[in-house]
Design a protein around this nucleic acid. Structure first.
Lengths: 232, 232
DNA sequence: CAAGCTAGGCGTACGCCGTACACTCGTCAA
DNA sequence: TTGACGAGTGTACGGCGTACGCCTAGCTTG
């Protein structure tokens, strides 16, 4: 909002800069969602004409790349003096916190076809944590693949769970329950439990940690038994 | 191509139908990529004016939903008379094959905010496979979350690996290797091995199965020891 | 202080996109 | 014969990313 003041002729205007453009992009995406972020709208927010942005970013792609860098830069650095497992775990959960603050970010990260230097550095440091924990290069390689996007704190849940935004959980109509009996069973059981549980529906954080720990424990087991891809 | 023939006045034109529109959409996306699929282009391919499509799909969103349904419909049904683990494994690998034939599909699936009936049915049957294997409703629920998009045959690899399309693997320049030492180490090791390995770089299928089996084995272990979320 | 360079912001314009809305026209039932 | 109906058409609108050229404030340099 403060950006939009139609600056008077006397007041020196704050000059644009790549950094200011990127941060404004992040803020705007946080507010209105990534699908409503357009060069024109961002320019308007900065009190500037659309083409002015192109002096600071080459095009929209580069804007998005830069915005991802800003977000990834917010992830906490690895904790020191911890075993690999808790260090990795902690960092990934920090990444998750960050991505929860910028809910559009995972979509943008997914849509990029090659990583930016900031993301490369993040991955490099993540690899380093496994190597420092004694993992072989080979095992680390597969481990990184297995983590996939989870290493940045998100998983594709296939669909955002939110059944209907705003409305109550809304009991499943009988004809739907009939067509998808197993989903219905699961939904009913979840609703049952909810009386004795805090929060509604699924606990996203619990699910995330459930899968993460399953993987980390698996890595641990392979590592301890000296797994190699050649030695079956 | 055959669609574009400027049909003569005598030849009866093949009427459009929702199914024909969806299949043409899938074919066009296969050919030119999802980002180049526009209503106008699809209409042109079908030898029809853009607005004609709107008699068969409500809007572009619904077109994409329908295209996903066509693709998911190509996944093989579960094999019969197999233990849960190999049945699930086989089905997921079949889904993977399908998604490899339609490389744009996972992006579209990810971008949808709520599942179509076809996808719901797929998920329902997947849940059924775990239930038939003796999994509790509760464990199955977490298991489904842990699988996430992997249940449809894809994982977010963060970035498509292809280092530079077309060109040779291109040795990493020294200044890059210096900045990302762990990535460099991994890349070098991989290149070493390649002489004694079929295929180039990473074996995507191997990586996919590595992570999938790690999860399935984890599920198996939890199941056999009677895991419950309450009983820690 | 004058001359001229430069970089940042401006204005216009182009070709795409999705799609609202009103139309034509062939088919078929009554 | 007529009337309704539904598939395909034509036009138009507002939004998008961005190429290209211009303007001008402020700095460098003699």
């Amino acid at each position: 909002m403060v950006e939009m003041a139609p600056r008077s002729k006397t007041a020196r205007r704050v000059p644009l800069s790549r950094d200011r453009v990127l941060r404004a992009g992040v803020a705007l995406a946080d507010e209105v969602g990534i699908e409503s972020l357009s060069m024109r709208r961002l320019a308007q927010r900065l009190g500037v004409v659309p083409m002015a942005l192109y002096k600071h970013v080459a095009n929209k792609e580069e804007l998005l790349d830069g915005m991802v860098d800003v977000v990834v830069g917010e992830v906490e650095p690895p904790v020191r003096d911890a075993d690999w497992k808790s260090a990795v775990r902690q960092r990934i959960l920090s990444a998750r916190e960050t991505l929860l603050r910028h809910r559009w970010a995972y979509r943008v990260i997914e849509s990029r076809s090659s990583p930016t230097p900031v993301v490369l550095a993040y991955m490099d440091s993540m690899i380093g944590m496994f190597r420092a924990g004694g993992f072989s290069v080979d095992l680390t390689h597969h481990v990184m693949h297995a983590l996939g996007s989870r290493m940045l704190g998100f998983t594709r849940e296939l669909f955002d769970d939110s059944p209907s935004p705003g409305s109550a959980p809304a009991a499943m109509p009988p004809e739907v329950a009939e067509r998808y009996p197993h989903i219905a069973e699961m939904a009913m059981t979840r609703d049952h439990d909810r009386a004795s549980t805090v929060g509604a529906g699924c606990d996203d954080r619990f699910e995330f940690e459930f899968a993460l720990d399953l993987l980390l424990d698996g890595f641990d087991r392979l590592h301890r038994q000296g797994w190699t891809s050649t030695g079956h």
